[in-house]
């Protein structure tokens, strides 16, 4: 469960004032909003990477407002994946487990399981150099869910992918949701992503987080900035 209550944030020239919303355990929440509306900053504060001015953040029923990122039990996939350039694919999947001093055999088992879920078994020994955009994102997602966190935060994970890869990633994300049972908050400005994945749909409007009913997607789409939907084929791979 992700519960944000009366949260206030300030960063640069934007602010969020007394924002509240909730995503129930195991649900897939999608958060939309204009570029610069504070989607990423909101996600970062939930992850514990940005300080909050006021309010409260609960994850899995625990107040984590003042907790360190390491203690929030959440997986975080930033926009560009932010993979570790010196590590192989399997190093990424094993990283959080090694930090937790899990046994070698258990780590190996888990790495294979994750690779199978994300269809990256053939990449395990590869360095991350030369991976395609979709492969990189799957590694980043695998790294984020490796230690079985209760919450998964995704910041525009599909924004740099072509349409075919993106469509396949919907399948992968759906599988991740089913197999992990994690509560997910996915930031995007792509309405088709929201339509394909969301259980709950939120939008940042004038410094507030407003929930929209799901059939409302068309209207949300038309309100979002121009590159929201993405013209087919215009996206970088």
């Amino acid at each position: 469960m992700i519960r944000v209550s009366e949260l206030s944030l300030r960063s640069g020239n934007f602010y969020l004032e007394r924002v509240s919303f909730e995503v129930a355990t195991g649900q897939y929440g999608v958060l939309m909003g204009r570029t610069g509306s504070g989607k990423t900053t909101l996600l970062e504060s939930i992850a514990g990477l940005k300080p909050v001015a006021a309010g409260r953040i609960e994850l899995g029923g625990r107040d984590v407002t003042r907790s360190k990122p390491a203690e929030r039990n959440l997986g975080y996939v930033p926009q560009d994946g932010a993979l570790f350039t010196t590590m192989s694919v399997s190093d990424h999947l094993a990283f959080a487990l090694e930090i937790r001093r899990i046994s070698r055999a258990e780590i190996e088992r888990r790495v294979l399981e994750l690779a199978e879920w994300l269809e990256i078994e053939h990449l395990l020994d590869r360095s991350i150099r030369g991976l395609s955009g979709g492969e990189k994102q799957r590694v980043a997602i695998g790294r984020a869910i490796s230690f079985r966190p209760g919450t998964l935060l995704l910041d525009e994970p599909l924004s740099a992918l072509d349409d075919v890869t993106r469509a396949h990633m919907y399948v992968v994300l759906e599988r991740v949701r089913k197999l992990t049972g994690a509560t997910i908050l996915h930031v995007t400005h792509n309405a088709s992503e929201a339509a394909s994945l969301a259980d709950r749909l939120f939008r940042i409007e004038d410094g507030q987080v407003v929930e929209h009913p799901l059939p409302d997607l068309d209207r949300v789409h038309s309100n979002t900035d121009s590159h929201a939907g993405g013209t087919p084929g215009s996206k970088l791979h």
């Binding site: 990477l49 990122p69 930033p78 932010a82 570790f84 959080a96 930090i99 937790r100 790294r143």
Partner: peptide, 18 residues
């Protein structure tokens, strides 16, 4: 070096020094 990578490491359970 993008500081995002350290931030991700923090969410994965690392202390600052790790």
């Amino acid at each position: 070096i993008d500081s995002r990578r350290e931030q991700v490491a923090l969410t994965l359970g690392c202390s600052r020094s790790q």
